Simulated scan of single mutants.
Amino acid sequence: MRLVRPRGNVVRAAIALGTAAALFCGLSTGAQAATGDFTYVNVNGDDFTLHDPANGECFLLVSGARSAANHTNATATLFAEQSCEGSGLTMPPNTSASFGGAAPHGVRFG
Score class of each variant (00 low, 15 high):
S87T: 10
G8T: 05
S98L: 03
R12S: 06
A80G: 13
F109H: 04
L78E: 07
V107E: 02
L17R: 01
G8L: 13
A34Q: 06
A74C: 03
A16H: 03
D46K: 12
L50R: 06
A13W: 04
P92M: 10
S63Y: 13
L89T: 14
E85D: 10
T90W: 01
G26H: 09
G26M: 09
T75W: 13
G30C: 00
G30F: 15
F59T: 02
A102V: 14
L89Q: 12
R5Q: 10
L61P: 02
G88E: 07
G30K: 12
G110P: 00
V10R: 10
H51R: 14
L23Q: 03
S28Y: 09
S63V: 02
F109D: 00
N55V: 14
G8N: 08
F59K: 12
G36M: 11
A34W: 07
M91S: 05
A22Q: 05
S67N: 14
A13M: 07
C84D: 03
C84V: 04
S87H: 10
G88I: 09
I15A: 13
R12F: 12
A14S: 11
T77I: 13
R5I: 10
A80C: 00
H105P: 00
A97V: 13
G110H: 11
E57Q: 13
H71R: 15
M1W: 12
A31V: 15
M1R: 10
G86K: 04
V11M: 11
P93I: 09
S63G: 00
L78R: 07
H105M: 10
V4Q: 13
T49R: 15
N42G: 08
G106Y: 05
T39P: 02
A22H: 04
C25V: 14
L60E: 11
A69Q: 12
G64F: 11
P104E: 06
F59I: 02
N42F: 08
R2C: 00
G26I: 04
F38R: 05
C25Y: 11
Q32R: 15
G86A: 04
R108T: 14
L61K: 06
G30H: 10
G45H: 09
A102N: 08
G88N: 06
P93H: 10
P53S: 07
M1S: 11
P93C: 12
A54Y: 06
D52W: 03
